[in-house]
Amino acid sequence: MKEKLYIIKIGGALIDDEDLLDEFLGQFAAIEEKKIMVHGGGKLATTLADKLGIEQKMIDGRRITDKDTLDLVAMVYAGGINKNIVAKLQQKKCKAIGFSGADANLIKAKKREDAEIDFGFVGDITEKGVNKKLIVKLLKLGLVPVFSAITHDKKGHLFNTNADTIASVMAQALSAKYDVELLYCFDKAGVLEDVNNPESVLKNISEEEFSILKNEGKLHKGILPKLENALGAIRNNVNKVFLIKETELKNHIENHHAGTEICL
């Protein structure tokens, strides 16, 4: 029987709210099973970019990363945000250790190739790019890895990589060793059938249902990358995948019924 591993992804809204983040990290620290956190950024990168006069370009919710923006997000994501989370987890008696993908070659990426859009210093990853053996060793030592969304190509270049994708691919890579449950924690109670009705939470969603909702334009563009990565994980042997409200982490761990479950 495989040992349980939670891979938990958090995003900007939570990171930007100090009190909410502190409460969440308390719930995360209390999880007894092995666990990994993957975090994105918050408004800090955008705020600093405005102050520094660095123009920010987004396409379909994804940041275009030029050299100045890369320097900024590496500083904010792998530096300030990552170390703040790690320090708060240490306060809660959680043996957290913060990483970018470049540290110990933990996540190797390749520059995104797109015929229509130059995303700049944006990296895409596959299972082969995840250093599974070393991550397993870290977990066996009782450490709790906390990953920022910064990766590298082993040629001296850093990349900005979608945190939802990192969580999904890492879950896939570790699913051969562990009983992996992937949790996307965000500011909604789950996937909403009606984006204007917070009570219209879908208890589960399949690939077919996702396609229908997407084609009907019922899904907010911000949820699309999460759902695409969640479906990629469930297709590739990750045992369970949920989208849950960040305040429901403790409830979900104990009762296994919060949010929306992703199904085949």
Rank of each mutant, 00 (worst) to 15 (best):
I10N: 05
G11T: 12
G12W: 04
I15P: 01
D16G: 09
E18Q: 12
E18C: 05
D19C: 08
L20I: 02
D22K: 12
Q27W: 06
Q27S: 15
A30G: 13
A30P: 07
A30H: 09
I31Y: 13
E33K: 14
K35Y: 10
K35I: 11
I36C: 09
I36G: 05
M37V: 11
H39K: 05
H39Y: 04
G40A: 10
G41A: 06
K43R: 14
L44E: 15
A45G: 12
T46A: 15
T46Q: 14
T47C: 01
L48K: 07
L48A: 04
L48Y: 13
D50F: 02
D50Y: 03
K51Q: 14
G53T: 00
G53S: 02
I54V: 12
E55R: 05
E55G: 01
Q56N: 10
K57S: 07
M58N: 10
M58P: 01
M58G: 01
M58L: 10
D60R: 09
G61I: 07
G61T: 06
R62K: 11
R63V: 06
R63I: 11
T65S: 08
T65H: 00
D66M: 02
K67N: 07
T69C: 01
T69A: 10
L70C: 10
D71V: 04
L72T: 00
A74S: 13
V76Q: 01
Y77K: 00
Y77C: 10
A78W: 02
I81C: 10
N82I: 02
N82C: 06
K83G: 03
N84D: 10
N84K: 14
N84W: 00
Q90V: 10
Q91F: 06
K92C: 13
K92Y: 07
C94E: 11
A96M: 08
I97R: 02
G98R: 00
S100C: 09
S100Q: 02
G101A: 11
A102V: 12
A102I: 07
D103L: 04
A104I: 10
N105D: 13
L106T: 07
L106W: 04
K108N: 14
